[in-house]
């Protein structure tokens, strides 16, 4: 097995053996369930597609928050406990360490995200929604999660403690979300820049309503790549310090 998968398997095991992992999973499922029941199902009568769209809207919020908490431990905890030396003194490239860590966090987030499938299933059984809408929504959640986790991995590479990592990542994620609001109060060409950078407001709603645009997929993949690349460079730079 190559080093990336070895690291990813160990990390995923660590999530599944730790109380923190289960607390995050439980919190996401409870909050998603409550929001779904109160706001998606509740209120005036809606079309099934609207209910599903609302479900994805609320899930995107919990996915972003969960991603920050899932990723905060990735490298900062290893540095805090001194275990990072095991990886950095082994014949493993820094990018393999970063990618392995990211993949484990992504797998864990995917498990949590897919555990919410019972809610759309309820709509599917009792209402009328397209399978494509369901797949597009979950693809959007996973892409959004991937981008946020990558930013979190970058934050974790920068910080010495998990709390700092969460603060760094939270600030970066909020900055990208706020781009959407800034776009509303600025004029072109700056407005176009903010719109293009907006993590949620611009790129997630199409997935939410069952549409997959290549530009949105590319956006989330680019954010993921840039954040992981930056995390790798931080790891490499630490060897010089």
């Amino acid at each position: 097995m190559n080093a990336t998968l070895l690291i990813a398997r160990r990390e995923l095991g660590a999530y599944l053996r730790s109380m923190t992992g289960y607390v995050i999973a439980a919190a996401v499922l409870i909050i998603n369930g409550l929001l779904f029941n109160a706001f998606a199902l509740g209120g005036p009568d809606k079309l099934s597609a609207e209910v599903l769209s609302l479900f994805f809207y609320f899930s995107s919020g919990t996915t972003i928050i969960a991603s920050v908490f899932i990723s905060m431990r990735l490298l900062a905890e290893e540095r805090q406990t001194g275990t990072l030396v095991l990886l950095t003194s082994s014949p493993v490239h820094d990018w393999e360490i970063v990618l392995g860590k990211f993949l484990s966090a992504f797998a864990f987030l995917a498990i949590i995200t897919l555990a919410t499938v019972y809610m759309p299933a309820l709509i599917f059984v009792n209402g009328k929604i397209s399978f494509g809408h369901l797949v597009a929504g979950y693809l959007g959640l996973l892409l959004l999660g991937s981008a946020t986790l990558a930013i979190g991995t970058f934050g974790s590479a920068l910080a010495r403690t998990q709390v700092l990592a969460a603060i760094f990542s939270g600030c970066m994620v909020v900055a990208l979300i706020v781009c959407w609001l800034l776009a509303k109060v600025t004029e072109r060409p700056l407005q176009d820049v903010f719109v293009a950078m907006a993590l949620h407001g611009k790129h997630f709603p199409p997935f939410q309503s069952g549409t997959v645009h290549l530009r949105d997929v590319v956006y989330y993949l680019v954010v993921t790549y840039v954040a992981l690349f930056s995390a790798t460079r931080v790891m490499e730079a630490r060897r010089w310090r």
């Binding site: 160990r10 095991g13 660590a14 053996r17 730790s18 406990t81 001194g82 275990t83 990072l84 030396v85 095991l86 003194s89 082994s90 014949p91 493993v92 490239h93």
Partner: peptide, 21 residues
């Protein structure tokens, strides 16, 4: 450095142990 890392075993001042394993 990769080839050298294959030939060395390193114990830092704090053993790098994963306590959950």
């Amino acid at each position: 450095p990769h080839e050298i890392r294959r030939r060395i075993g390193f114990l830092p001042d704090t053993p790098p142990l994963y306590s959950d394993m």
